[in-house]
Design a protein around this nucleic acid. Structure first.
Lengths: 232, 232
DNA sequence: TTCATAAAATGACTGTAAGTCAATCATTAG
DNA sequence: CTAATGATTGACTTACAGTCATTTTATGAA
């Protein structure tokens, strides 16, 4: 008969509509300054109805976080597909660049990822949208792990570091830097004369030296002393 | 006559009492779950009185953040004093270790620093306790900048990277990693078999390779290919 | 000691927003 | 057409941040 299937589809669609409306409201006014009534108005539903689809305001936000990770994951997967011919290390560089690009092209989605990173997750917390968001985040880590493994096999990445550990470290470090840039750059630049592009450049250079594995050639020992900046 | 001086001192002391009480309440129950009435009760004052000393609940939290940065700064300064004889790079390593130690010895203060890092600061936002917290944070960065400059002068740190930029990158990266460890480690370990100590170890190894400047000796080119793990 | 003035403290009150639920409306199937 | 099931509603409850008219306490001059 297909009635229950249709119902289920409609329920899904309405859930997505609510998330769309919530994104609109939250991204415009900020999560704290937004009310469920505003979301309801935008979704053309009553406040009570929202609670038939989501347990709480936070649950809606978790659904947006889940979206953010899915979008990020799609972008990173695209990059990895496009760069399949490159070395594992080069792929990892491309992924880092893609994450940085994501942070600037989708500032609102990136902000939700930052909120996710700062939220406490304990095992009780872990159900519904929140669990799905976590697993989507883990999916992004898996992409990194694969690139790192490839790099360790093709000899472009130091094999002495365990791939999963390295993936978490790289993800956490870059997210930390992007967080400072996003949240504090405007103000910091009143105290220090630094620019976000230079911070990212510095990060990428340090990481390159930190994880890349170079073939041994005596005239290329990049770790050794040099008179001046190697840039440009 | 000294009356107004005494008044000012008493005002300061009572402000600190309120912060003490707020720490107690916020650290026990979490900021969101705490009420101003609870803080007032703990401080043995009425709710209204709190607002004579602080503009808002957030303002009290900012005062706690300020404390956190002061405590961290004191610890890092102590380490830098103790290690004055070491190379700039070794000092930087010691500072990183001290920051990690701080995160574990003062979990509540460290958590407030994480909240600070995730909070939006725009120029209007920037007054009162919040401004002081920001400047205390900048003080920590200055410590790093000095160690880096020293390392670049004594030849232990790559001179090609600008010291202030590098300080921000190092601070942001390590904070990012500590954030993931603090907020997600419990749950992540149900999906990946990783341990916090290994993540920190990996981070420190990568950073060492990334920023340390080595004297050129052909038998020490650490970046070159090697058959197996170099650990142990 | 007394009293007027100012400073500090109070807690009942207001406004706002998350979340609930009894009542209403819509859909389906017999 | 109608009963039953499911979806929707918005007035209501609860909780808390922040306010302010009133009360209490401290100060210093007479």
């Amino acid at each position: 008969m297909g009635v229950s299937e249709r119902k289920a589809r409609e329920k899904l669609r309405r859930k997505q509509n609510i998330i769309d409306a919530a994104e609109d409201v939250f991204f415009t006014q900020g999560f704290e300054n937004s009310t469920m009534s505003q979301v309801a108005l935008k979704a053309e539903l009553s406040k009570g109805t929202l609670y038939l689809y989501f347990k709480s305001k936070d649950e809606i936000y978790s659904a947006i976080i889940l979206r953010s990770f899915h979008i990020l994951q799609q972008h990173l997967e695209q990059v990895l597909t496009d760069c399949a011919a490159l070395s594992g290390f080069r792929m990892l560089e491309k992924v880092a660049e893609a994450y940085i690009k994501f942070a600037y092209e989708f500032p609102n989605y990136f902000n939700t990822i930052l909120d996710y990173e700062n939220s406490d997750f304990d095992l009780k917390n872990l159900e519904g949208e929140a669990r799905r968001a976590l697993e989507a985040g883990n999916g992004v880590i898996d992409l990194l792990v694969n690139a790192i493994r490839k790099g360790q096999e093709d000899g472009s990445i130091r094999p002495s570091l365990e791939a999963t550990e390295m993936a978490f470290v790289l993800w956490s470090q870059l997210t930390g830097l992007l967080q400072v840039i996003r949240k504090k750059m405007d103000i910091i630049s009143h105290y220090f004369s630094i620019q976000k592009d230079n911070l990212l450049q510095t990060h990428l250079e340090i990481m390159k030296k930190g994880i890349e594995l170079l073939e041994w050639k005596s005239n290329e020992s990049k770790d050794t002393i040099r008179p001046l900046r190697s840039d440009e």
